[in-house]
Amino acid sequence: MIINHPLLGPRDAQEFTYLGDATLIDRPDGLSFPSADAAMDAMHDYLYQRSNPAGEHRELWFHEQGDRSWLVVTRNTVTHEILKVELARDVARMRGRSK
């Protein structure tokens, strides 16, 4: 596969390491819950409850043999068509993450 890196252009997927569902970006703050149980539930869902669609999927890929950017790749898991590639850092900021 070819991943069209937002900064470097088309690069072979062999250069990347796959992590999984891009919802991993939405990590809850473990100290932001009223109780330890609530934190546990939220963290559990965050880590284990992921969708595995046949079709469009947003995924995290790491350009390990490249510029070490984490990317959010929107890919059709059936056809392998890649519809969008973004820097994960930009996506994280858009989703309200900061420090």
Binding site: T17, L19, L24, I25, R27, L60, F62, E64, R68, S69, W70, L87, A88, R89, D90, A92, R93, R97, S98, K99
Partner: peptide, 19 residues
């Protein structure tokens, strides 16, 4: 060494983008 570096970059870019 390699997986830890990858993990650190993940935390830096995906979880703490403004650090």
């Amino acid at each position: 060494a390699v997986p830890v570096f990858r993990h650190l970059e993940y935390v830096r870019q995906c979880l703490c983008p403004d650090m």
